[in-house]
Design a protein around this nucleic acid. Structure first.
Length: 213
DNA sequence: CAGTCGATTCACT
DNA sequence: GTGAATCGACTGA
């Protein structure tokens, strides 16, 4: 049976836990982006955990910089980074404060505001592709660096928030190596997704770029 | 201060 | 499956 989504906001304590506990628990939760044109909501289906200074795959591995500062702050805030000269990706910071751990939001199923998401994702061939991949997800929601540091647990009219939704049962969660992460960071199976969900992005191993002439 | 490359996506072959 | 797009952060000299 289908149960209606729980629209209760997730409290900050949800994020003030070890990132490996939070990441799989985020699957099935609802991310709501409020825009002037209206809300866009999606159900999270794929995430990756990044565990601060201990994790060679994390942006925080080499310490705090201007870009990654938000990761070192309190949990429940949004870390947005710019990559490949054209894309944005969004994370949710986890606890404890100072550990600089975060969950990369990699994919979701748009459940509200699909017409708004389609306008931002003109190359999507169908609605399953609207947020299939971290940069696609951010594009669909209209998320960029202006939202870096946003508190996703704040009360009132916030540009981004996370709702309780329906937690995904652990026997429906798969995990494996993180997409596009190489080196020593590749050994950690810290990518989590909803098993067989059609909105989950394909896995790709890390591929070093060839030199340009 | 120049070189390298990225937690990716898209158009093409 | 392969290569281009595109730029800012980070690295090391």
């Amino acid at each position: 049976m289908i149960t209606p989504p729980d629209r209760t906001p997730l409290p900050r304590e949800f994020f003030d836990r070890p990132v490996l506990e939070v990441a799989p628990d985020l699957l099935g939760r609802i991310l709501v982006r409020t825009t002037p044109e209206g809300p866009i909501a999606l159900r999270l289906t794929e995430v990756e955990a990044y565990d601060g200074a201990a994790d060679p795959g994390s942006h925080a591995y080499r310490g705090r910089t201007a870009r990654n500062g938000v990761m070192f702050g309190p949990p429940g805030h949004v870390y947005v980074y710019f990559t490949y000269g054209m894309w944005f990706c969004m994370n949710l910071v986890c606890g404890p404060e100072g550990r600089a751990s975060a969950v990369l939001l990699r994919a979701g199923e748009v459940i509200e505001g699909a017409e708004l998401a389609r306008k931002r994702r003109l190359s999507a061939r169908n609605d399953k592709e609207l947020a299939k991949g971290p940069a696609r997800l951010a594009t669909a929601l209209g998320v960029d660096r202006a939202l870096d540091g946003t508190d996703a647990c704040a009360a009132g009219e916030t540009p981004l928030r996370i709702l309780t939704g329906t937690a995904t049962d652990s026997d429906q969660v798969s995990n494996g190596p993180r997409t596009g992460v190489g080196g020593d960071g590749a050994v950690h199976p810290w990518r989590f997704w909803v098993t067989n969900d059609p909105t989950v992005s394909p896995y790709r191993a890390h591929a070093p770029r060839r030199r340009r002439s």
